[in-house]
Design a protein around this nucleic acid. Structure first.
Lengths: 126, 126
DNA sequence: TCCTCAGATCGAACTTCTTCGATATGTTCC
DNA sequence: GGAACATATCGAAGAAGTTCGATCTGAGGA
């Protein structure tokens, strides 16, 4: 359940807990500084489009936890360039990872990325 | 920790767990249908702007868990109409509540809204 | 080497978002 | 009722996002 640094942009936002007693989620405990807010907003913005939520969800629920672009265009009903574009945004946000294997590019959910984001929002007292 | 129906748009998304054994977060367990994805994206989109993340955070961390517009314009450095606009988007997303008291409009975080959103992302096994 | 296929990138059209000044609404006080 | 104040709404300008067809890149096979 613990946290390892990855390429996720909100890495240093999810550090255990500052000196102030851990009463609730970071976002709720103290006013986020502009830099932190910008980092966070970039990740949320990546999830702020229905197509991208579906893509993330489809990839996560897919066999083996990964999927290639060819698996994704038909479910979301969009062109290949558009799907590639959305996948790139999800990768840039640190939510998906891309791995080239042969002719195919496989996308998978970055382990812990959603957990960290969720923990940031959740008031896990103590 | 349980869920009460509020105005939050993702109410029926965070129901306990379907028949399939609860292994992980809903978003990761099965591919989200278009309607669910759209509802979710609308909430994430509300958090997809640095100003709104800051506003939410400032309101949550403010004395009494609430703040009026006049408390918020100066910290974020934007005009009053712009701040009102952003607050409206957060209210529409079900993240903030608005209460008129005298001349002032007080905004506060909707109880449980962030928890539900966080739970949706977090793989709380069991 | 050349062809094929999966996927990324480009360029353009369209839509949506952000932000402001101006103005409308609604509340309190005289 | 009218002045003063807090906030909401309107309209417009500029920025950013979505989507596609066309094209480029890169890997595998004949």
């Amino acid at each position: 359940m613990c946290v390892m640094a990855t390429t996720l942009t909100l890495t240093d936002v999810s550090r255990p807990a500052p000196e102030s007693g851990a009463c609730c989620a970071p976002l709720v405990r103290e006013a986020a500084d502009p830099q932190t807010a910008a980092d966070l907003a970039r990740v949320f913005k990546a999830l702020g489009d229905p197509t991208r939520v579906r893509l993330l969800s489809i990839v996560a629920a897919h066999d083996g936890g990964e999927a290639c672009v060819c698996d994704l265009t038909e479910p979301v009903g969009l062109s290949q360039p558009t799907v590639s574009h959305h996948l790139k945004l999800l990768v840039d946000a640190g939510l998906l990872a891309r791995e080239q294997r042969g002719k195919w590019a496989y996308y998978s959910v970055v382990p812990g990325a959603l957990n960290r984001l969720g923990a940031l929002l959740t008031e896990a007292a103590g």
